[in-house]
Simulated scan of single mutants.
Amino acid sequence: MLAALSLLATSGSPALAALSYAPGVTDNGLHYLIVNGEFESTDDLSKFVTSAQISSTQAVTFNSSGGSVAKAMELGRLIRSLHLITMQARGLECASACSLAFMGGTLRFAQPGAIGVHKSSFSDDTTLNVADAVSAVQQMTANVIAYMTEMGVDPAVLQLALTYNSDDIRYLSGSEMEKYHLTMTEAQPREAPPAQTATMPLPSIAPLALPPAGQAASQQPSTQASLPPIAAEPLPSLAIPVAKSGRVQNYKGQAPLKAASSSASPTVATFMNGSPLTILDDTGKWFRVRIGNKVGYMFRSWVWVAEFGAGPYGSQFVQVKSFDNYPQTEQYVRSSPLPLTAFLASNGWFAITLDRTFDPDSAEALLTKLKASGSIPDDAIVTWGNAFVRKVCCTKQ
């Protein structure tokens, strides 16, 4: 379990203007890159990529008081595309927009109080008129929410940040960073690194000390231990439980109970979403059910099955892909920059979704945003997930 992460940094040393990069390596061979300075819209991040490649960087840490939100998210996406981890401690500053860049890590470690947020982290200054300024802020907020979701961070942290004005930074506690998935412990990873980097040394129980920017590698203190390699995940259970009970859950807010297992058969009654039911038989495409004193047939995609338990009733999934085999499913989930999970469906296929559910309005808005950015396929859908049986990838069963 990660107990501490400390950075040996010059006390009170301010972050430099514009971005610069200082590489280093610890005694146990962890190559890191310190990102110094404020994020500016004109920053050329190809220099970051070059620095990371030349120094064989595995981890990124920051000495930045913030700056351009858009540029910070651009750096975060670069960090994710390069499969780098991020780590931060109170010895170096990471506040405001810097918190967004930190989110790009495939694994993220931070000491309590190391990450600061406030309102200016999420709205760049402009000289627009009131109407255009409001529109710009709304668009930026939507962009940040989509980015956070893409990085596996709970967008609720945005609500917390917006309660603090630009002159009042709120430093997050360790429990808050875990709550919002800003950090990941070895016991609860949000996304496993790709296979080729899975055994690299990571911050450990022994304090990891990194030097201030510019200090020679020979002066670095040693790291006493590293985390064990990420274990290969066992194959999931593909057993489908017998459906016995559930509730009505349909896009229209209600669903008809039919006299026979055919959409052309007469409607016995119509029931609102949430109506409890008992499943008497499974005919394949239809369930024979009892609702109150009525018995009839209901199309199985209109029924949320309690025994499946794949997701909470009343919330929706953003489904991005499906496969008919597990190896292909696991490969897709693990190689995607998005925070994904996969479910065994009742038809034996595997449905890949974003790793959390949303209320219907938020799900539709996020689907539209991610499609427009090219982050998910054009045939991705929003679904209630009524046919999802259980999570099968990629967390421990």
Rank of each mutant, 00 (worst) to 15 (best):
L8F: 13
L8I: 11
A18T: 08
Y21F: 15
V25E: 15
N28G: 08
H31A: 14
Y32P: 13
L33D: 09
E40P: 01
T42K: 13
F48Y: 12
S55V: 06
A59R: 02
T61G: 05
G66T: 03
G67M: 06
V69R: 14
K71V: 05
G91I: 05
C98Y: 07
L100T: 04
L100F: 09
G105N: 12
F109C: 11
V117P: 06
S123E: 11
D125W: 04
Q138V: 06
E150L: 07
G152I: 10
L162G: 09
Y164P: 07
R170H: 15
R170G: 03
R170F: 12
S173P: 06
G174D: 01
E176S: 07
L182V: 15
Q188D: 13
R190E: 11
P193I: 10
T199S: 15
Q220F: 13
S222I: 11
S222D: 12
P241Y: 00
V248P: 04
A259M: 12
F271R: 03
L280H: 00
R288H: 05
F317P: 00
Q319D: 00
V320W: 00
Q328T: 12
L344F: 01
N347I: 01
W349R: 06
L366T: 08
L367Y: 04
L367A: 04
L370M: 15
A372W: 03
P377N: 01
A380V: 04
I381R: 07
T383W: 01
W384D: 07
